[in-house]
């Protein structure tokens, strides 16, 4: 087991959610759920993060932002789409400004459904992500002889 799985730092970004999932993500940090028990911190800075937690669907203006943040997260990294909007666009799927789920823009590793996703399922999703994180780490090391691994893009 690598240290990665014991200290996943998350970055939360609200793509275009209704806030429901966002406050549940935040609620995970607070005394009742206290994810810091698992070493999970909400860093707020992509450059320090391992897990990118996105809520809400992609719209015109945040498309570039999500891409930019994703690029600024150092490898290995995992994307967790929280809530049905992030997964597929949800109730807003038909809105003129919504492109759909986060996977339209960046590769998503874990989908956490729910409207709003409950803190329990968010934590569950993050724990799922840890496994993937470790896999990516292993893959990043392997082809070290050749070119550098590029991490998440291939998933």
């Amino acid at each position: 087991m690598t240290y990665l799985t014991r200290s996943p730092w998350i970055l939360h970004y609200d793509a275009s959610s209704c806030n429901g999932c966002d406050i549940e993500v935040l609620a995970c940090l607070t005394p009742l759920y206290d994810v810091e028990r698992f070493g999970i911190l909400n860093t707020g800075n992509p450059k320090h993060s391992d897990i990118f937690v996105v809520t809400g669907g992609v719209n015109e203006q945040n498309r570039e932002v999500i891409k930019n943040i994703y690029e600024q997260i150092p490898d290995p990294k995992v994307v967790v789409a929280v809530g049905i909007c992030a997964t597929s666009g949800g109730v807003f799927r038909e809105c003129y400004n919504i492109m759909g789920g986060i996977d339209r823009i960046i590769p998503v590793d874990v989908y956490v459904p729910g409207c709003a996703a409950r803190p329990e399922s968010i934590i569950d999703g993050i724990v799922k992500a840890l496994g993937i994180l470790e896999e990516k780490r292993a893959r990043m090391r392997q082809p070290d002889t050749g070119k550098k691994a590029t991490g998440g893009e291939t998933v």
């Binding site: 240290y3 200290s7 996943p8 206290d34 810091e36």
Partner: peptide, 20 residues
């Protein structure tokens, strides 16, 4: 809160060294 394990800072630093 319950808080992280006592050794958490070491995990964090170990993790950081594993990152790009």
């Amino acid at each position: 809160r319950v808080g992280p394990p006592i050794l958490q800072p070491f995990y964090d630093v170990g993790k950081l060294f594993e990152k790009e």
